[in-house]
Design a protein around this nucleic acid. Structure first.
Lengths: 344, 344
DNA sequence: TGATTTAAGTTAAACGCTTTAACCAAATCG
DNA sequence: CGATTTGGTTAAAGCGTTTAACTTAAATCA
């Protein structure tokens, strides 16, 4: 399939290639209405498709966005198995496509090497999900291209963020349990790093307890990793060691699912014996058995927000960047894993 | 960040840019060991990163692979929510990255417009999942670039495929149920199109029945769409209309999960009253309650296979393409949704 | 020894596009 | 009426690579 170039179009329209370029890039005022329409006609008759490599080389936009998600430690695979990330990617892709951009999706190895990718491909911008080591963010800044962070509390005004109020979410979940009469409420969660998503949710948990006049008992927090397996493990430990616990707040649905299984294996019924609330509302949350009560964030919408912000920054230049972080809305998805505690 | 070009490297090494290019692309024999190492040193001292746009323009490989997955009808979003696709993408991405390629992930609108993308970006190849209208494949062929199809029985030797033995899988699932004493076995499935994945599984189902001397009863096949919702719906219908049914084969785990819910809503217990077997073994299959017995295909591995095939075709040229389709292995994942039927 | 092949590099064109400086009428001005 | 502006257009210079064609020097051969 022979490539149709801008030159072919210009010849057909009887104008110069520059004129064609002007028309096709919407440089108003540089060209008369008449030639503009001649050019457009020629282009569509020839079925002209611009070559983005050439465009990119010539110094304009590549219309390529880098999207980074964490990868599994062992296999070096994308963490796309985590529905949370897939959903985000869905939201991002749809919005980018709609604006004529394409997405290069990749995992990064310990935060290294992405600088190369970015330069090789002349990326116009990037969306980064997850948390990486410091040096990764330094690299990112050196590329001098707009960047949006999702799920990250990196404190640097260079980056834009699209976040949720994790603290409020943690509070909502815990409050729901308290309102249902629970007082011994466990927290099952990934590692609580300083300034991480998880820490905020943890803080919300503590605030709710305090507000209700309940003691915060550090024996009730099970903290390790964000995975189904850990949820299961923690539930087993908790059922065995703390029979007085009647409710669990898991800071991620994936973990909550594990908790469900762990409790069931330990002979506890949900929600009769123990209530459980998760966080995220990934699609499985409503498919599992019993359907999981959880804190819903509209993940797809959040992806779209991130894309919007990025595109805005790219197209309207640095100046347009709002430095208030976008904060997506949160609500409770009440399903069947929380039950009022019957005083016995 | 000023871009370091091949010219900078050449000057530093005291050779021509051509020499640098030869060295960096491993053109053996064009250049002496001595200059080669001078060049390499210079390149690494300057931290040279080649510009892929320029490479692509100059007529060599873009090192970009297009990956296409279906999108939802309504929202125009990627169907990445379906874990089956996410897993494939994981496998593909890991392998591509490892070989220095990048992936442009996108959905296509009714099979249209992808030709453009492909030409704009000078894609080196593409991996297509799902099934599209005829014209899409015609477009694909016109780009003259290697293409691997996943989950598609398009009968055209131009395309390479990475498939599984769907018929055998359908047979395995059904046989498992028969071996457990079931005779009234329903099939819940997406639309059975001619030459589709689903048809093959359906054929396996029929073969197992026939082989066991059981009647094929078309009232027992519930055929509509591959979704949780439909599984739920079908299960309701089946429980209400055919109480004699004691087992269900769902041709996809997503559907099977719906069936689980539908049965439970209808007051049927799984596996005590009705046994269920799914297909795919997506991660949720082991997380749901009870854990789903299903036909396992190693989805991630299949993605990797697809990537391997594609890279081979790209790097070793057309001639190297094996025209035997790769067929991935299948096995039963026995969990807790199938029970021996007690004669009453 | 002289002719010929080979090895090691270099030069310069090409890839398809954007963009700037220059150009040319035609219109406007003093 | 000559000088200046202006709207419209063009030719040409990159952008960073690759590669075919060419050069030169050294090695091989008869």
């Amino acid at each position: 399939m022979k490539r149709i170039t801008i030159r072919d179009v210009s010849e057909r329209a009887g104008v110069s290639t520059a004129a064609v370029s002007y028309v096709l890039n919407g440089r108003e005022g540089k060209v008369s209405q008449e030639t503009a329409s001649k050019v457009r006609r020629a282009a569509s008759e020839l079925n002209y498709i611009p070559d983005f490599s050439a465009r990119s080389l010539a110094g304009t936009r590549s219309k390529l966005i880098g999207v980074v998600i964490p990868q599994t430690e062992d296999q070096k695979q994308l963490l796309l198995q985590n529905p949370f990330y897939s959903e985000l990617v869905c939201g991002i892709e749809a919005r980018l496509r709609q604006s004529g951009y394409h997405m290069i999706l990749s995992g990064v190895d310990k935060g290294e090497g992405y600088l190369d990718t970015s330069m090789q491909r002349n990326l116009d911008g990037a969306i980064i999900m997850g948390i990486y080591q410091e040096s990764f963010y330094d690299d990112l800044k050196r590329v001098k291209v707009p960047i949006v962070l999702i799920d990250s509390y990196v404190n640097d005004s260079y980056f834009q963020t699209v976040s949720i109020d994790d603290e409020a979410g943690g509070y909502m979940a815990t409050k729901l349990l308290i309102d249902n009469g629970h007082t011994n409420i466990a927290l099952v969660t990934g590692l609580i790093r300083k300034d991480g998503v998880v820490e905020k949710r943890f803080l919300g948990y503590k605030r709710a307890l305090k507000e209700a006049g309940l003691f915060y008992n550090s024996d009730y927090v099970f903290e390790h990793s964000v995975s189904y397996e850990y949820g299961q493990e923690a539930a087993a430990a908790l059922a065995a060691g703390h029979p007085e616990i009647t409710a669990v707040f898991a800071t991620s649905d994936l973990v909550a699912l594990g908790v469900l299984r762990g409790l069931s294996d330990a002979g506890k019924r949900v929600p009769e014996d123990v209530s459980v609330v998760g966080f995220d509302d990934i699609p499985v949350a409503r498919m599992c058995n019993p359907p999981l009560t959880t804190v819903r964030q509209n993940i797809v919408a959040r992806g779209a927000m991130a894309a919007d912000r990025l595109l805005k920054a790219i197209e309207e230049g640095e100046d347009s960047v709002a430095d208030d972080p976008s904060v997506a809305r949160l609500e409770l998805a009440i399903r069947q894993t929380v039950q009022r505690l019957m005083p016995n």
